[in-house]
Amino acid sequence: MTEPQTELGVEDRAPELVPLNAIFATDFVAILVPVTTANTMDEVAAAVAHHSEGRRVRALPYPKVVIHNGRKLPGHMTVAEACIQPLDHVAVEYEIPGGAS
């Protein structure tokens, strides 16, 4: 007798590749960034910023936030938890405190 098949939860699967269309802050170049379902939003932000920050966009001393479908995602959230799909568009912006310019 075989054991019944159970569906694996998101946290039980091996990380899968998720290429994202991304843009960083005021950059004019959209890029394709490979991340995995296990990457956190902090890691996604760093991966996107790597291609622009200090090159076409001036580096600023503020944390970065990922925006997907109009919502800011917490840094600890994974790509899988955020339900981000391959080729979805994300924007990465600096989280500038109120009043700073």
Rank of each mutant, 00 (worst) to 15 (best):
R71L: 10
Y94T: 00
A25I: 03
L87C: 08
F24W: 03
K64R: 12
T6E: 09
A82D: 03
E3G: 12
Q85S: 14
N21K: 11
D27G: 11
D12K: 09
V92Q: 01
I96E: 13
H76A: 14
A49D: 00
G70F: 02
R55G: 04
A49V: 00
V48C: 06
R56V: 02
N21M: 14
H68E: 12
H51F: 06
P4H: 09
V10Y: 11
E11R: 15
V57E: 03
N69R: 12
P61T: 01
A14H: 15
L32K: 15
T78A: 12
L20F: 03
T36P: 11
V44Y: 00
V10K: 12
T26V: 15
V44C: 06
A100F: 04
G54I: 04
I23M: 06
Q85D: 05
D42L: 06
L87A: 08
L32F: 10
E81N: 10
G9W: 05
L87V: 04
I23D: 02
I23G: 11
P86H: 05
H76I: 09
T40R: 11
H89K: 07
E95W: 00
A46R: 05
C83H: 12
V90I: 09
G54N: 12
S52K: 09
M77W: 04
Y94G: 01
D12H: 08
T78M: 05
L32W: 04
V48I: 01
T6C: 08
R58V: 10
V10N: 15
T40F: 04
Y62M: 04
A59T: 11
P34I: 13
V44W: 01
S101T: 11
A100T: 02
E43A: 14
I67W: 13
R71V: 13
R55W: 05
S52F: 00
P4F: 01
